[in-house]
Amino acid sequence: MDAKTLQARLLELIRRTSCELPPDVIRAVDKGWRREKPGTNAKYAFGVIRDNIKLAAGKSQPLCQDTGTIICDVARPDWVSERAFRAAFEKAVDEATRVGYLRQNSVDSITGRNSGNNLGPGSPVIHFHETTAKALTARLMLKGGGCENVGAQYSLPDTGLGAGRDLEGVRRCVLDAVNKAQGKGCGPGVLGVCIGGDRATGYVASKETLLRPLDDDNADPVLAKLERRLLDEANTLGIGPMGFGGATTLLGVKITARNRVPASFFVSVSYMCWAYRRDGFQLSAAGRIAKWLYD
C-alpha cells in the first residue's frame, strides 16, 4: 500500500469516528431513553441526543463540535514503520480539519495560538504496539474536553471518602468521581477506571479500557462484578442525562488494573461523554479495510 492509500483509509477512520456512533453505544443510548419517564427533561435530552446521532451520520458531520483529543491506538505489523504511519495519520488529520470532520482543536499552551490543523507538540496522540499479525489494527478515540476535564485520580487511602486500599476503596472513589462530574461531562457517561499503575500509566490504561465494546464482560470475574455494581449504583444517584435529573447517569463502567509499587495505590478515572466517539478497523497490507471492529 502506498502512503496516499494509507492516508485515505485513515481519513475515513477519522470521518466515521467523528460522525457516526458505534452500534454498541447507540444500543446503550436507546436503552437509557426507554428507561426515562415521558414528559421529563431527561426524556427530552435523550430525544435530542437520538436525533443528533441520526442527523450527524446522515450528514456526515461531527456529532459534537468538540472533536476532542485525537487518540489513536495502533497494532503495527512489519510492513509499516511508526514513522510512515505517523506521517500518513498527520496528513489525514490535517485534511480532516480542512473539510470540517475535525475542529481546529490544538492550541499552543504558552502563546494561546491555535495551530489551525490539529497538529503540534503532543497532537495527535498515537500509541504503537508491535504485532505479528498480517493486518494493521487501528482504533481511534476522539475525547472531548468537557469530559476530559472531569477525569479524576485518587491516591489511597483517602480519609475524606473513607477509602482504603481495597476494592471497596476503589468503589468509593468511582462514585465520588461520578457525582463530581455531574453536568460538566455530557452525561450519561461511560467510565474507564484503572486500579494501580503510576500517575501516568494509570490514566493511559483508564483510557485504553474505553476501547472495549460497551456490552462485553470483563475477563476478570471480580472486576466484572464491580463494573456491574458500580453501573447500578451510579444510576441511583439521580443525576440523569446532562445532569437534568433522571435514572440514567452512566451507560457503562470498564475497569482494568496495573501493578503498583508498594507505596502507591492510585485509582484513575476517565470519563467519556455519551458522544462516545471511537471506532477502529483492520487494514490489510494491500490497503483493504478487512473489518470494522465495532460493527
Binding site: I49, Q65, M242
Partner: peptide, 13 residues
C-alpha cells in the same frame, strides 16, 4: 438556557 451537550448537529441545523 441549557442546550443539550454533544448535540452539535441538531443545534447547527
Amino acid at each position: 438556557l441549557h442546550a443539550v451537550g454533544g448535540a452539535a448537529q441538531v443545534l447547527a441545523e
